[in-house]
Amino acid sequence: MTTPTLRATPELVAIAWLKTVVGNIVATTLPKPGSSGVLSWAESGFVTLVTAGGTPNLYVPLREPVMGVSCWAASPGSQKPPWNKAAALAEAIQAACYDHPAIPQTVTLPSGYPAARVLSAYTTGEHRRIHDDASSYARYDIPGLVIAWTEVPT
């Protein structure tokens, strides 16, 4: 039996690129609270993402997924969501899309995966406040973050 070759995926590439923007506070799901109910990300905020669409290029190995991005913030012990902290994460991502000299760049993926070359990143809409979170978290969504990328040949 042959071991399958690991390939870069839209989520892995988007996480790696977003980590260059906001640091190591990015994943596909929010971290669960610790045993004492403490949120490990309360001080920094957190960013989650999901693949929302996109179309791979028909002729060349160029990928352009559209990612849905959520920027989260929490104030443990308070019922008032820290909207400005969540908005600051969304603004940092938007600003990185305008930082054209910093793109393209090669991003490192988890062990065993090839690196990916991010060629461009842009948003398809303004981030917006999401109300009515039962946990009193602040959340801003970026409806579409398009990251054009290709695998780096090994």
Rank of each mutant, 00 (worst) to 15 (best):
T51I: 15
L39H: 13
L119G: 02
T5P: 03
I103T: 13
A134F: 03
P104S: 05
G45Q: 00
G23Q: 09
S75C: 07
C97M: 09
D133F: 08
Y137H: 13
P61N: 11
H100K: 14
T3F: 12
R63W: 11
D99H: 13
T55Y: 03
Y140L: 01
C71F: 02
V107L: 04
V66S: 13
V60N: 11
S75R: 14
A115H: 14
V60W: 10
L6I: 09
V26K: 04
Y137F: 10
G68H: 14
L18C: 06
W17K: 05
P56R: 09
K32W: 04
P33N: 09
I103Y: 02
W149A: 00
A27L: 01
I25N: 00
T124L: 07
W41Y: 12
V69L: 05
A14W: 04
L12Y: 08
A73E: 01
L6G: 05
L109A: 11
D99K: 11
V50S: 15
E11C: 13
E64N: 14
G125H: 08
A116H: 08
S70M: 07
G45Y: 00
T9E: 01
W83D: 11
L39F: 10
S36D: 13
P4H: 06
S44H: 04
A90Q: 07
S44Y: 02
A115R: 15
P104V: 01
I103S: 02
A115G: 11
L18D: 03
Y140K: 03
T5H: 13
K19H: 06
T29K: 13
T20N: 04
L49K: 03
T28L: 08
L6N: 12
P81A: 12
L62M: 09
G112C: 08
M1I: 14
L30E: 03
A134H: 09
T108K: 15
V50L: 14
G23C: 07
T55N: 12
Y140W: 12
G34Y: 05
W72D: 07
W17M: 05
L49W: 08
L39C: 05
P82S: 08
I130C: 08
R117E: 15
H127T: 13
P65M: 04
D132Y: 13
G37M: 03
G144V: 07
E64F: 01
L30F: 02
S44W: 00
D99C: 04
L89C: 03
A121C: 06
Y98I: 05
T48L: 01
P143M: 04
A148D: 02
T108Q: 14
E151R: 08
I103E: 01
Y122W: 11
R139A: 00
D141C: 01
P104D: 03
P65A: 03
A95I: 12
G37V: 08
